[in-house]
């Protein structure tokens, strides 16, 4: 009799028929084609991303509910999976909140909320950047590619040189007025050409910095305290 009990339990099959499964497969394909079409449609980024996320969420739900038949299965399975999924979603939001745009490319700069900078160390540099209106020649007021030098530094250099220019062990050296005792040309050259064999890239090559941009950076790291 154990037999029949077991068989009965095993017979709680999802009610889906072969035909329906094939239909679902077709629907998933059509959704993918729509996504593909959207990605080529030249829609503005905002709506495009929203639409893509929407369609992939729909596909996700269809597969989990019908192919993995969670819709017809024991609630325990549903709760188990929902738990992991929600935790992962929270993790994603938290990580993006913490790190997104942390050392973002220049076009993101300015839009970065203060809190997004790792451990909130960015404060002092952001402060310097506000001295835009100060007289020319002020090393804190320089501009690099049209944005305040401190912000440029924050966006491009802190990953290796540290949020307070204190250096990062194993990565970039400290860039503080107290330690930078070489002539300006020396640092200019390093920033322009990078240092072969180290992680320091050429900023003329990677970002197209001009000599004037690099001068502003050199003045900034040599004369402005973090």
């Amino acid at each position: 009799m154990e037999h029949e009990a077991a068989a009965a339990q095993h017979n709680e099959h999802p009610p889906t028929t072969i035909r329906q499964y094939v239909m679902i497969g077709l629907i998933l394909t059509v959704l993918t084609v729509i996504e593909l079409w959207l990605s080529y449609s030249g829609l503005p980024h905002g709506p495009l991303i929203a639409a893509l996320l929407f369609f992939s969420a729909v596909k996700f739900v269809i597969v989990v509910a019908l192919f993995m038949h969670l819709r017809f299965d024991h609630p325990l399975f549903r709760r188990m999976f929902a738990f992991g999924f929600v935790l992962a979603a929270i993790l994603l939001v938290a990580l993006l909140g913490l790190f997104w745009g942390d050392h973002a490319s220049t076009d993101l700069v300015g839009g970065i909320p203060e809190g997004a900078v790792v451990a909130g160390h960015g404060d002092s540099e952001e402060g310097e950047a506000e001295g835009e209106g100060e007289p020319a020649g002020d090393p804190a007021a320089g501009m690099v590619q049209g944005i305040p030098v401190a912000e440029f530094f924050q966006a491009n250099c802190v990953a290796c040189h540290g949020p307070n220019r204190e250096g990062v062990t194993g990565l970039g050296l400290p860039l503080l007025p107290s330690v930078l005792d070489q002539p300006d040309e020396f640092y200019h050259d390093t920033i322009a050409n990078g240092r072969t064999g180290t992680a320091m890239p050429s900023w003329t090559a990677t970002k197209g910095l001009t000599d004037a941009d690099i001068d502003a950076l050199v003045q900034f790291i040599k004369h402005v305290e973090p």
Binding site: G84, L87, A88, L96, F99, L108
Partner: peptide, 22 residues
């Protein structure tokens, strides 16, 4: 196991997004 895999891939996807454009 699949619930834990959500976290596994969730972390990798977050990392990809954070490094995107960097």
């Amino acid at each position: 196991f699949l619930a834990s895999e959500c976290l596994f891939f969730g972390t990798l996807i977050s990392t990809y997004l954070i490094f995107k454009g960097e």
